[in-house]
Simulated assay, not measured.
Amino acid sequence: MTLKDSILGFLIIFLWGINFVVIAWGLEGMPPLLMGACRFLLVALIGSLFIKPPKIPWQWLLAYGLTLGFGQFAFLFSAMAFGMPAGLASLVLQSQALFTLLFAALLLKEGITVLQILAMLVSGIGLYLVAGEGSGQGTAMAPLGFILTLAAAMCWALGNIVNRTINKRGYQANLGLVIWSAWIPPIPFLLASYYFEGGEIMQEALLTIELTTLAALFYLAVAATIIGYSLWSYLLGCYPAAQIAPLTLAVPVVGLAAAAYFLGEVVSLQQGLGIVLVMFGLVLSVAGGRLLGGVKSFYLNRVQKNS
C-alpha cells in the first residue's frame, strides 16, 4: 500500500474503534432503539445526496438493511445500554468473522478448513473467558449485554451472507448499498422504540436532546458510516480484499484503548487472556492460511539451499 492509503487505513481503524466510545456517550442522552433510528435516518438523508442508488433488487436491499442495519445495531446499542462495556463490545462484535464462516457453511454450503475450525474453538474459549468475571478488578459486564452483543455479531454475519449472495448474483455490493439500505432500519427501529421504550420517552428524548447526543449521532452517521465506508470501498477497489480485510482486526485494539482512556474501563486478568485468545483466533481465521503458506515456503527454500 502507498503511504497515503496506509494513512487512510489507519484512519478507518481509528474511526471505527472510537465508534464504541461515541455510542456510549450517545446512550447517555437517548434510549438505544431511538438512537438507532436517528443514526440511520441521518445516514440516509445525508448519504443519498451524494451517492447514487445501487442497481440491486429491492428484496436484497431489504435483507441487507434488516440484518446489517437494524439487527446488528438494535442488539449492539441495547447491549451497551444494558451494561456491555464499550471496549469489550468492540472485541466481542468481531466474532462476526467466526459466525460468518459458520453461516456460510450452513447456508451457502461453503467448506470450512481445519484451521478455521481451530480458530473458532480458540476464539470461543476466549469469549468464554471474556464473559467471566476474571480474577482482577475488571469493569463489570452484564450477562445480558454480552449475549446481546453476540446476537449483534450474528446479525452482522448474516448481513455478510446477504452481501456475498448479492455479489454472486452479479450485483455490486458497494457504498451505494450501505447508504440506500439505511432508509430501511428507521422504520423497525421506530416501531420497536415505541413498543419497548414508549412514546413519552421518545418524545422527551427528542425534545430535550443535548449537544453531546447530537454530536454522537452525527459522528456515527457521517464519520463512522459515510466517511468510514467510503474510505473502505476506496481501499477495496485498489487492493485485494485479503490485504484489506485484516485491518478490521485492529479495531478492537483501538476500541479497548479508547474505552480505557475516555471511559475509565479496565479488564481483569482473565478477560485480558480472553482478549488475546479471541484476537489470536481471528488472526488464524483471516490470515492463518497465508501465514502457514509463508512458513511452508520459507522452510522449503531453506531445505533446497541446504541440499
Rank of each mutant, 00 (worst) to 15 (best):
G29F: 00
N163K: 12
I226E: 03
L8F: 05
A151N: 06
L8M: 11
A250R: 08
A81D: 13
Q172L: 12
A224P: 00
G124H: 09
P252E: 06
E197N: 07
L61R: 03
G274A: 09
L106M: 13
G281Q: 09
F70V: 09
I46N: 03
M35E: 09
A241I: 02
G289E: 13
E210D: 13
L300W: 10
L88H: 03
A74C: 10
A287H: 10
G136I: 06
A224W: 09
V43C: 05
F196Y: 11
L291R: 10
G87D: 07
Y64A: 14
I51Y: 09
A63Q: 07
K296Y: 14
F262L: 12
N167G: 14
P143L: 10
I125L: 14
V22Y: 07
L41V: 08
P32Y: 03
Y195H: 09
L207P: 01
G65A: 12
I13N: 04
L263S: 05
T248D: 00
L101G: 04
V222M: 06
I147D: 02
T2K: 11
I244P: 01
A81M: 05
I166K: 04
Y239W: 04
N167P: 00
T100N: 10
L207W: 11
L34V: 09
W25G: 06
I56M: 03
P240H: 05
A105E: 03
L273Q: 13
Q96M: 14
I13Q: 05
T149H: 04
L42P: 01
F99H: 04
N306Q: 14
C155G: 01
A245T: 04
A287W: 09
Y261C: 02
L45E: 01
K109E: 10
G71P: 02
L207T: 15
I51P: 01
Q116H: 08
G87Q: 06
P85S: 08
A151D: 03
L93K: 02
G176H: 07
G145F: 02
S268K: 06
P188F: 11
V254D: 07
A182W: 09
N301S: 15
V276A: 14
L220F: 12
G198S: 08
L291P: 00
L235Q: 05
N306L: 15
W58L: 15
F75R: 09
L284R: 06
Q72W: 08
Q270P: 00
